[in-house]
């Protein structure tokens, strides 16, 4: 009630803010040595910073996808171009499922990590294992495709395939690195929640954008 009054004071009225130091919604006091007053924030610095970064990433993949769609619409002899190998749709569908499950596992870890960090250990490592499976399995597919003659220079189709899927793979690997570091922290029982939440946001982005890329690059 006191808080509500302090917020309701007229703008610029000194009493509305000056006299309510400990009850102002914006202000929490540190008992320790640090700065006298701190702002309560909606999102932690790490999570907000990561979300802004994800905005750029979405636009990056948006650029790649629009370029891909333009390139595809320019193809005069059908898509994929004649003479190019067929993409392994079924295997990748299975890999996609693994990646989505890893997102689910991470969400389970998220539900548990605040109250009982130790119980978050198994879902977190499950997410890491599923993500690793996805990466390795996709890499294995690449080896096969290269052997079948799909390369960067074989056609625009090949170039876009490796560019888009490769850009995503790069993101998966970086995100896995962060997930593993969170996993190790959980193992030691000293998880930094901000770091975990930021990593989590980035992993959801990596997982969430993949079905879109799969649908566009493999299925269309």
């Amino acid at each position: 009630m006191v808080q509500a009054q302090s917020r309701g004071g007229s703008r610029g009225d000194p009493a509305s803010l000056g006299g309510t130091s400990s009850t102002d919604l914006n202000v929490v006091y540190d008992s320790g040595g640090g700065p006298p007053a701190k702002r309560k924030t909606l999102l932690s610095n790490a999570v907000l910073g990561t979300m802004i970064f994800i905005l750029t990433e979405i636009m990056l993949f948006g650029g790649l996808v629009s370029a891909f769609l333009i390139g595809k619409s320019m193809a005069s002899f059908g898509w994929p171009p004649p003479g190019q190998p067929r993409l392994p749709i079924e295997n990748t569908a299975f890999n996609t499922l693994a990646l989505l499950l890893s997102g689910v596992a991470l969400f389970v870890a998220h539900r548990r990590i605040t109250d009982a960090p130790a119980t978050a250990k198994s879902p977190l490592w499950a997410a890491i294992l599923l993500g690793t499976f996805f990466t390795v399995s996709q890499g294995y597919e690449w080896v096969g495709l290269i052997a079948e003659g799909l390369t960067l220079t074989s056609s625009v189709h090949g170039a876009f395939f490796y560019l888009i899927v490769g850009a995503h793979a790069l993101h998966v690997m970086v995100a896995l690195g962060f997930l593993i570091s969170c996993g190790l922290q959980v193992n030691q029982g000293a998880v930094e929640l901000n770091r975990f939440h930021a990593t989590e946001a980035f992993w959801y982005f990596v997982v969430g954008i993949w079905p879109v890329l799969y649908g566009l690059v493999y299925l269309s």
């Binding site: 636009m59 993949f61 650029g63």
Partner: peptide, 8 residues
């Protein structure tokens, strides 16, 4: 940050 992605 919203416009640089496509250029990258």
């Amino acid at each position: 940050m919203a416009s640089v992605g496509p250029l990258i």
